[in-house]
Design a protein around this nucleic acid. Structure first.
Length: 498
RNA sequence: GGGCCUGUAACUCAGUGGCAGAGUAUCUGACUUUUAAUCAGAGAGUCGAUGGUUCGAAUCCAUCCAGGCUCACCA
């Protein structure tokens, strides 16, 4: 406490000194002519021409040496050494230079040159304060050893990094890289869909009913209407209304909210893309998924093979397609194709798989799959033929009333996407939602509710449609080599302090 | 929610019952080509919080708070 006061005190005093010199430490204008990256990129040109340039950035290192000082200044394109000499900037300006602290924003007017030690630098003819910082930034020092950057005293306390993400971004360059990659991926996804005639839309986040997934919602309240509203748990039901409305290809990229546990692949709010394509089915969705992910990988990473922490993930088409029941049989030798509840239950008990009171054979099959098969699906795999019982929005598989035309995409043992040949039979859909509703009454808090408005829309007619949802955060994790979802969400959910 | 682990200076960390420590950062002094600058000196702490054991607690015990990993939960 005393200590931070002391550190604060010093900076505030310097701030006052700057003001006393008649200088505004937070000026309205700056005069940057070049970004640092440009100086580095066209080094020869700037060295040859000796032209006047003005850069601006944060001061992140300072080596003062009496009447001369070397600093490192960085902007979002790079970092460069500055050289400030009393004889060059003049006595008055040098006094100002002395009032800079690490972290302050600085404008440097000068020209490029190479120091005696061979470092490409900017020789200042004038420095200007663009903004004084009052709190000291943690200091991370770097040294190049054998061409590799070694960093000292890195800012890596995980809690601090997430709570003060601005510091994390400033001090850990790879963190910024992750979020830049994320941005590029989403842009690339948009480009891909836009080029195929998809229309991007925004649907309500505050909804009078929630649906489209099995999950518990967050509840809020609208004062004027005096009604409870739910934060959406999926985008599905509103996007299908738009398919009914004749937007034949539609997508939305947005946040979903699920009031459930958090771990390294779950955050209460997370980003999804959902897309729906009229006159298409599950097979079209598989091809589209392959094409889209491959497109993003090529565009953003420039590769078809991802190296995920040493595991090679091959994205080249076609990806594996396998039926859930076949995979279970392969992995365990257990054949559940007859949906014999007693038999399946016995298998679960034998393998200590928890059986929820509302679970039927389909739910148990999914559980068995989750335990025995999921973690083994490392290369991209479309798992198809889901039990109808756990797929209330998917169309039945022709020839087998117990299964649906649905896939989930698995990579690296995690689920990345979910798609159906969408159920467009309004009467069937009503029955399925009502069955879900019964499960709710029996205590399944994650079962769907009956959305009459959605059912009415279906009665007006939804064309045959293929739909797909992909978890964006997880895809970013895959592309950036992160094992925690918190690393790809700028401000992940944390418990409030105190 | 269970198990394991972590919390000490602004940052990174040592310290396992006997005076609260180091490096960096900060401050003072020296230094007109340094680059983890260097050299000399100084200041800086509610040892996560509360309670207990003890002559004595950062250290042992209990509870709580925050975080991490993991299991459970979770499309």
């Amino acid at each position: 406490m005393e200590n931070i006061n002391q550190l604060l005190q010093v900076r505030r005093e310097k701030l006052e000194k700057v003001r006393k010199l008649g200088i505004n430490p937070y000026p309205n204008r700056c005069k940057r002519t070049h970004k640092i990256g440009e100086l580095i990129e066209k080094k020869d040109k700037f060295l040859e021409s000796g032209e006047k340039i003005i850069i601006a950035g944060r001061l992140n290192a300072m080596r003062r040496q009496g009447k001369v000082g070397f600093g490192n200044v960085s902007d979002d394109t790079g970092k460069i050494q500055i050289f400030v000499r009393k004889d060059n900037v003049g006595e008055e300006n040098y006094e100002i230079f002395k009032l800079f602290d690490l972290g302050d924003f600085m404008q440097i007017e000068g020209d490029c040159f190479v120091t005696r030690m061979g470092e490409y630098s900017v020789r200042a003819s004038m420095v200007t304060m663009l903004g004084k910082t009052l709190l000291p930034l943690p200091v991370v020092k770097e040294k190049v050893v054998d061409g590799k950057v070694e960093r000292y005293d890195e800012f890596h306390d995980i809690e601090l990094r997430y709570r003060k993400r601005y510091l994390d971004l400033l001090l850990n360059p790879e963190v910024k890289d992750t979020f830049v990659t994320r941005s590029k991926m989403i842009k690339s996804m948009r480009d891909f869909l836009d080029a195929r005639g998809f229309v991007e839309v925004e649907t309500p986040i505050l909804q009078p009913l929630y649906g489209g997934a099995n999950a518990r919602p967050f509840v809020s309240h609208h004062n004027t209407l005096d009604v409870d509203l739910y934060l959406r748990i999926a985008l599905e039901l509103y996007l299908k209304r738009l398919i009914v409305g004749g937007i034949e290809r539609v997508y939305e990229i947005g946040k979903n909210f699920r009031n459930e546990g958090m771990d390294r692949t779950h955050n209460p709010e997370f980003s999804m893309i959902e897309l729906y394509q009229s006159y298409a089915d599950i097979n079209d969705m598989m091809e589209l998924t392959e094409d889209m992910v491959l497109h993003i990988a090529k565009e953003v990473l420039g590769t078809e093979v991802i190296d995920f922490l040493g595991t090679e993930i091959q994205l080249k088409k076609p990806w594996c397609r396998a039926a859930m029941l076949d995979l279970i049989k392969e992995e365990t030798g257990f054949d559940a194709a007859d949906f014999d509840f007693v038999k399946i239950k016995a298998f679960c008990t034998e393998h200590e798989i928890e059986i929820e009171p509302t679970a039927g054979p389909g739910k148990l099959i999914e559980e068995i799959f989750g335990v025995f098969v999921e973690p083994k699906l490392i290369q991209p795999t479309f798992v198809i033929d889901f039990p109808k019982e756990v797929s209330p929005l998917a169309k039945e598989k022709p020839g087998n009333p117990l299964l649906t035309e649905r896939f989930e995409l698995f990579i690296n043992g995690n689920e990345y996407g979910n798609a159906f040949t969408e159920l467009n039979d309004p009467l069937d859909q009503r029955q399925r939602l009502e069955a879900q509703s019964k499960l709710r009454e029996m205590g399944d808090a994650e079962a769907n509710v009956v959305d009459e408005d959605f059912l009415e829309a279906l009665e007006y007619g939804m064309p045959p449609t293929g739909g797909l949802g992909i978890g964006i955060d997880r895809l970013v994790m895959l592309f950036t080599g992160n094992t925690s979802i918190k690393e790809v969400i700028l401000f992940p959910q944390m418990k409030p302090e105190e």
